[in-house]
Nucleic acid binder design. Sequence first.
DNA 1: GTGTTGAGTATTTTT
DNA 2: TACTCAACAC
Length: 728
Amino acid sequence: MLELTKLNHHQLEAVTAPEGPILVVAGAGTGKTRVLTTRIAYLIDHMGYDNNKILAITFTNKAANEMRTRVFNMVNNVYVPWIGTYHATCLKILKEDIQYIGRKNNFSVIDDEDQLSILRDIYKRGGLTQKDMKPKKALEVIEKVKMNDIQLNAINSLDKAKELGIYKFDELKNVKYVNQMYNQRLLSANLLDFNDLLLLAYKLLSEHGEVRKKWQTMFDYILVDEFQDTNELQFNILNLLINQEKKNVFVVGDPDQTIYTWRGAYPNIFKDYLVEYKQTKTYVLDLNYRSSQNILKVANSLISHNSDRIDKVLVTDNGEGNNVVFYKGDSDYHESNFITKQIVSLTKNKSYDYKDIVILYRAKYLSRSVEQELINNNIPYYVFGAVRFYQRREIKDLVAYLKLLTNPTDELSLKRVLNVPTRGIGNTTMDNITKYANDNHISFAEAFYLTNRSDFDPPWQKPAIIQFIKLIDSLISLTKDKTIAESVQLIIKAINYEDHIKSLELAEERLENIDEFIKSITEFETKHNTHSVEEFLHEISLYTDSDDNTIKNKDAVSLMTIHYAKGTEAKVVFIIGMNEGIFPSIKMNRENDIEEERRIAYVGITRSMEKLYLTCNVGFSPISTSTLTVSRFIKDVGHKNLREEISEMIPISDADLSWYSSKEIKTFEDNYNETVIEFKVGDTIAHTIFGSGVVISINGDMLDVAFKAPFGVKSLIKNHKAIKRLKN
DNA sequence: GTGTTGAGTATTTTT
DNA sequence: TACTCAACAC
């Protein structure tokens, strides 16, 4: 029997709401996920809904899996197949019906790395280099153009191009070319990027009434989590999937947690929803179960500085709890050192495990200085979203081989592996084939498989290619009746992949990853009871989280961006880099971006259950090459809500020093410091090349400094930028 | 054709 | 630091 007694009054009302459109506005930590999963269970158990006809949209694949497991455990092992992100849902729909819009359903989905390698290829063919425009920036423009349906070719003035971040006519011309080539390439190779999944699903459902009807009858009930981060296109797709007679839709969200406006989300979507579904019943959850009063005070105080919001204050029955700590260090080294010290003391008498601790930051690059300190102190940690599992080189190689076996004309995969491991098919050979393909108006893959023709020039390049084609042929027949896992093992053997890996850096880790990959394939095959490579490839094309199982059991500190942390909670939370220019980011361009930055901070703060640390440092920033200042968000929070910790004098070991020095000093603009630092004998200094040293004598503007072997004593100019005095 | 080296540069957020 | 790319040696 479904347990409803654990729910509070408001939660229960939402869970047992009648049919028809529902909106649940749920603040952070108010049991949003519990309400959503219990609602699904309730639909099946009490309202007689078919578990196969319920669609639940989540924001990440990770959240989807969690929800599925929770429902499975709640109502006697019932499996709900349609739980997934907008992208995953659209993918499944397109796989079934894409032929209605004139495309074949053997498409594959490409990730951002694939996109970039296509762009690099286009650059090469078009004679462009990254000096013309960084491929990454070009990709940004391409995505923006695609998502906003901008007619790039119609843009002829720099005034209009400005909105795309383009300020030169050359750039505009180049990006037009690259954009056209990119989309042409995707179409001819039958590839879809992430945006295509949404756009084509929308096209399919909006243009074909019979298909729309089919899916509307397919889903009796639709639920959406994290509704505040739904964008207009996704909302339109949702509306096309909702059966407009019954309007059985249940959305849950918190406008204060909208942190994806850069991807088209908009806080006003709640208003749009209420207009679209006028009979909507609204439920509000504001009793927070997660955090202590002190943490909520900080969160409420911060978010109250946003003007563009509906007033809402989180309350809790939890105790006052610990003070929220604010720490200001003299450098990023001090900041990281403070954090590791806290972690050491928090975990010393087992009051907390490493896995209770999360370190959050605004941007990925900020993790580095903390990582260094965690390593120095032997604290186990895991960085989420750093290099995603399926984007690892070794995994992508093997996946490319798999793809090639199912579809030998897959140009992207072919190009990726034709010289991995190296087999003498280098750039010159590839250029030859490309030229032949262009001259004869055939694809690269077609030209490649035509190598045995008599006019192939130069002939000495032939054997390597022919051997490779034979390899692929033999692998195709060899893997014919094998499972996917067996096929991958056969591939590894046939190409001697292990030897190749051993010649690379991080060989051990890569071999472990390969083991993990094979394990996950076996899991997939058992779970879905299939050996279809194509199904497997579709499954992993969207699965960007690194394998949860490998991390879950490890006792380690977690590091992640706040965006990534959405939907998670932890007993102890550190938010680092609370500096102007970092958080809020210097990259804000529109006026109300500051409100979004504040919401991001709000999301970070509300992840914490028991202890919260906000840290920053006022050293040099690699971005602004000037001294950092404290984030305005600290002022928003109010110093009365914080306990301030003072920067300590830290004895610096040699290991720390070499890292600290090389990192800090490079940021000076000139070779010499403007102000001459007054040294005295005995000061410890850091030098970019020589490492740590001690001042042994001073002669005018020169210093004699004793460095460790092999450098010995050196005479240096006092204000040279390579020198920095350290606290001692 | 392959592999190494040194110079130059970079940093929002993700499905 | 870490990554990319052009230039050069083999």
